[in-house]
């Protein structure tokens, strides 16, 4: 088949030059002058328009948007820092108030303690005086009772002894003996 095609090609080759010369006028591949001219003109116009009129506003919008995003970002970061600062301040204030409160409580507690100590001391003093009074009273009563007891015991003992020996006994000596005894008993 290729050989056959070559035969045709050779047959055609004789006036191929003429055919090509004829074909160049309507060659669908080659660029045509008027279309090239208009394409060049219109593309140059579009390029100039794009460079000076159409594109700059778009780029400005991009830039504004980027700036706004950056500014907002910075503002947000600043707000965040301010928030942290305020939080720290607040916490510091809170800690101060808390320590103040602790101090007040401590003070109140100390005052209370002192007051209580004073009260307790007074009460204890009262109690002590009452106790001394009572003790004095008791001692007096004891003395009196011992005196009474001594005289009555002396009487009984002297009477009993007189009854035993059938004669009067020196009362004063007996009194001394009984007193000694009672005093000894009181000691024991």
């Amino acid at each position: 088949m290729l050989a056959l095609v070559n035969v045709f090609a050779e047959a055609a080759a004789t006036d191929v030059n003429q055919a090509v010369a004829e074909a160049t006028a309507k060659n669908p591949i080659l660029p045509v002058m008027n279309e090239m001219f208009w394409t060049l003109v219109f593309f140059a116009i579009l390029w100039a328009l794009m460079k000076f009129v159409l594109l700059p506003p778009v780029m400005r919008t991009f830039k504004e948007r980027a700036d706004k995003v950056r500014d907002d970002q910075l503002a947000a970061e600043a707000a965040d820092t301010a928030r942290v600062d305020r939080l720290e301040q607040y916490e510091a204030g809170l800690a101060g108030a808390r320590s103040e409160a602790v101090k007040l409580i401590e003070q109140a507690r100390a005052e209370g303690d002192a007051e209580r100590r004073v009260q307790v001391g007074a009460a204890e003093a009262d109690v002590a005086s009452l106790r001394t009074e009572a003790a004095a009273e008791i001692a007096g009563a004891k003395e009196r009772a011992r005196g009474e007891l001594t005289s009555s015991i002396t009487d009984i003992a002297v009477g009993a002894a007189e009854a035993v020996v059938q004669k009067s006994i020196d009362r004063s000596a007996q009194v001394r003996v009984v007193e000694d005894h009672v005093a000894q008993a009181g000691k024991n």
């Binding site: 008027n34 279309e35 001219f37 208009w38 394409t39 116009i45 579009l46």
Partner: peptide, 15 residues
Amino acid sequence: FYGFNKIAFISLVAI
């Protein structure tokens, strides 16, 4: 060189 045809018109429309 300045014959204005459909192709040139399309280029104009592009602008």
